[in-house]
Design a protein around this nucleic acid. Structure first.
Lengths: 211, 211
DNA sequence: CGTTGTGAAATGATTCACAGCT
DNA sequence: AGCTGTGAATCATTTCACAACG
């Protein structure tokens, strides 16, 4: 369908911000928006917005701006969130549970469909309609349901081992909450959330003048 | 003490990764490390590592490498985590509670010392020794305890308003979990964690070849 | 020797500025 | 008139390559 698409990393990171803003504008009934306005709402310049959009096609109407509806659709399609992704959660500790019940996933195109843990006291309990299953079941369930994305919320010590097993089961993207750099094969995506690192960035900004 | 320090943003982001790795190496008893090894462990080139360290001084010994101990100390000092930062948590929902009890903060230089919420059913309950207080108390407690960092884990609809109140109370850095861009005055740091965005990045990487 | 520290070169991203479309 | 799309210019970051050093 699309030939060969190369999106610079910074542009890729901004895409979800554009989408978030555009969905809000659509909700508010706005039909079209120009690059300057959209940029101002997100803290970018108009030129930045236009360059970003130009990487994946030509949409704007000179003198008018961009169709909010069309842009939403196109960005969702590029990000792959025009469909719903099934997600597996590994680790039913506090973070795993909080994320499993996170209410904003579903209208953004993600649906938690399975939860795994190794703690015998937790296995079998129910979280939002899903029985917590032993991690040993991962290898069976993930290919069976053709799950591609996983959320890894386990202790640092076992994170790499479980990541390996996820990849072996067919997962192509891991959202990692353990403060460790996961080694994964080429073609597998990892996106990490490290609460301590985030706080450290704040401490640094507060300590040094300009970063 | 230091004259005027300018750290490029990408370097700043890598600093906490260096620290994490170096602490592990120190723990393992390693005395010195060279830029190539350290880089390999984190996925950077040796030149990158040396340039990064060069932004804040001259440490390495040609022919030998860097003192793990010295480097840890220096990076911590620059990041401001050679002391412990008191942190306030706003929002005692699932995410707020998970983060309040997150066990890895303390040895990274952060300590949750107060929790606020507005839900009458939650106010007064106890989480890890801390009574959940009404948000109205923020304005009093934060200056009183001289708290600089806050974790904001509240619904999108009230995030901006609470951010304003945090800033007014003297907070200089906010770790934001709400999927919204917070508007804050110059000099106030914001670092955001958006679970949906993180998953979207993975979906995008899985959909497109190279980002 | 092996490894740092650093100018110089290469790459990458952002901003400028304006021709051209509606 | 107003705003897009985009080459050209600027700015930032990374990589190269090597002299200097312990």
């Amino acid at each position: 369908m699309d030939e060969r698409l190369r999106i610079p990393k910074p542009t890729a990171r901004r895409l979800s911000l554009y989408l978030r803003e555009l969905e809000a504008l659509k909700e508010a009934g706005l039909v079209s928006i120009n690059s300057t306005q959209l940029g101002k709402a997100l803290g970018f310049t108009g030129a930045q917005v236009r360059k970003d959009f130009a990487t994946f096609g030509t949409f704007g109407r000179p003198g008018v701006g961009y169709s909010v509806f069309h842009l939403c659709g196109t960005i969702k399609q590029i990000m792959g969130t025009d469909r719903t992704w099934d997600v597996a959660v590994v680790g039913a500790g506090k973070i795993g549970l909080a994320i499993t019940t996170y209410p904003r996933f579903i209208d953004r195109g993600f649906k938690v469909v399975a939860i795994f843990d190794n703690n015998p006291n937790i296995i079998g309990t129910t979280v939002t309609n899903h029985k917590v299953r032993p991690v040993a079941d991962m290898t069976r369930i993930i290919p069976l349901r053709d799950i591609r994305l996983a959320i890894l919320a386990v202790p640092v010590t076992v994170a790499q081992e479980l990541a390996d097993r996820l990849v072996a089961s067919g997962i192509t993207g891991i959202l990692n909450f353990a403060p460790v750099r996961l080694r994964v094969p080429d073609g597998i995506g990892v996106s990490s959330v490290d609460f301590s690192r985030s706080l450290e960035q704040l401490a640094l900004e507060t300590s040094i003048d300009f970063c």
